[in-house]
Amino acid sequence: MRVGILGAGWWAEQHAQALATLEGFAVTGVTSGSLESATAFAAQYGGSAYRTAGELLVAPDVDAVLITAPHEYHAPLALQAIASGKPLLLEKPVATNAEDTHAVLNAARAVGVPCLVGFTSHYFPGFSRAKQIIDSGELGRPLSGQSVFQKRWMEANRRDWHLNRERGGGMLLTAGIHALDRLMWLMDAPVQAVSAVIGTHLHDQQADDLASLFLRFAGGGAGMVGSYGYAQGGPINATTILCEAGSLRVTPDSLETGQEDRWTAVPLILPDNLTLAALAQEWLELRAWAESGQLPRVTPEFAGSVMDVVFAAEESARQEREIRLNP
């Protein structure tokens, strides 16, 4: 599968490194905010540099497309890629608002183009094994969960657009969305309502750095999500799930089951590089979807439901009331 990349930033580099580990994959084209940056990327990772997305999308040696551009460009670039008919790996978020999100997903469905949204938690060993245990039924039905992503917000790869919500920035859309995604995946039930407090407390920016969400799930389950971008603090990237017959405590690279008042570690096979291995799995699933119709772990419908909860949470924070979904 020959891949054209729209957006030559840090995360595109992670994808390029992951693609280099896979047989039958190669970077064959790239475009970016400037031809100079695209040329530098191509010199390091292969392929041709293009001035525009349109030029790349019609290139005969591009079979599939990766979008790793700034969030504000996800929807317009995705619609262009879908119109080209080429399978698409679209990094989260799908778009910066609900209307554009569903325009993208509906367009992909109408044309029949595979569109895999990059929620990487599904491919980390801890979370994927936790999902297997939940699906097996051995712990019974999930009843309640907590999921927190707490990290330094102003890390080295922050750009101006990250600091402006109108451009798709903020901790929730950038990182906290992963905590929400994995909680929804592991709870295995639709979210029916969300209540949220979202604000900017620690940084001088026009986007959130702290968000707390309370979710009501179909069937009576409940969950809490913390999206915390600190200026000074310590990182947390973990999810806990309470089921009818036990509990789970999970991180990307660890998993414990809780029963009889104690925690027991679950053995995991860990790759040398968690991130590159997860991205490689995304590409393998996109290829399988394109070639055989086998759906990936992150279906478009699920990705759309995560985005719906994000936008409902923002509306809840604005109105200071609970917002219902999936009536």
Score class of each variant (00 low, 15 high):
1 M>D: 03
4 G>E: 06
5 I>H: 00
13 E>R: 14
16 A>L: 06
20 A>T: 02
20 A>G: 08
21 T>E: 15
26 A>I: 00
28 T>C: 03
28 T>N: 09
29 G>Y: 06
29 G>V: 07
34 S>T: 15
34 S>V: 01
34 S>P: 06
35 L>W: 00
44 Q>W: 01
44 Q>V: 13
45 Y>G: 11
46 G>S: 14
47 G>W: 08
50 Y>Q: 13
52 T>K: 09
57 L>E: 08
59 A>I: 04
64 A>F: 06
66 L>Y: 03
69 A>F: 00
71 H>S: 14
72 E>R: 14
73 Y>E: 06
73 Y>L: 12
74 H>M: 04
77 L>Y: 11
77 L>C: 01
80 Q>A: 05
82 I>Y: 10
82 I>D: 02
82 I>F: 02
83 A>N: 05
86 K>T: 01
89 L>P: 01
93 P>V: 15
96 T>L: 13
97 N>D: 14
98 A>W: 00
108 A>E: 12
110 A>Y: 01
114 P>V: 05
115 C>Y: 02
117 V>H: 05
120 T>L: 08
124 F>P: 07
125 P>A: 05
127 F>S: 03
128 S>P: 03
129 R>L: 10
129 R>G: 01
139 L>H: 04
145 G>V: 01
148 V>T: 14
148 V>N: 06
149 F>R: 09
149 F>E: 02
151 K>I: 03
157 N>Q: 15
158 R>V: 15
159 R>F: 15
163 L>E: 12
165 R>E: 10
166 E>V: 10
169 G>H: 12
174 T>L: 12
174 T>V: 14
177 I>W: 05
178 H>M: 05
181 D>V: 08
181 D>Q: 03
183 L>N: 10
186 L>D: 11
186 L>H: 06
187 M>V: 04
196 A>K: 03
196 A>I: 03
199 G>P: 13
214 F>A: 09
216 R>M: 04
217 F>W: 00
219 G>N: 07
225 V>L: 02
225 V>N: 00
229 G>Y: 11
231 A>V: 09
231 A>F: 12
232 Q>Y: 07
234 G>N: 12
236 I>K: 12
236 I>H: 15
236 I>Q: 13
239 T>I: 12
240 T>E: 12
244 E>N: 11
248 L>S: 08
249 R>P: 00
249 R>E: 15
251 T>I: 08
257 T>D: 02
257 T>R: 12
263 W>K: 00
263 W>S: 10
264 T>D: 14
267 P>H: 11
272 D>A: 14
274 L>Q: 10
279 L>Y: 11
283 W>K: 09
283 W>T: 06
284 L>K: 13
291 E>K: 05
291 E>Y: 06
298 V>D: 00
301 E>D: 15
306 V>L: 06
306 V>K: 03
307 M>C: 13
310 V>M: 15
314 E>Y: 15
317 A>Y: 05
322 E>V: 14
325 L>C: 07
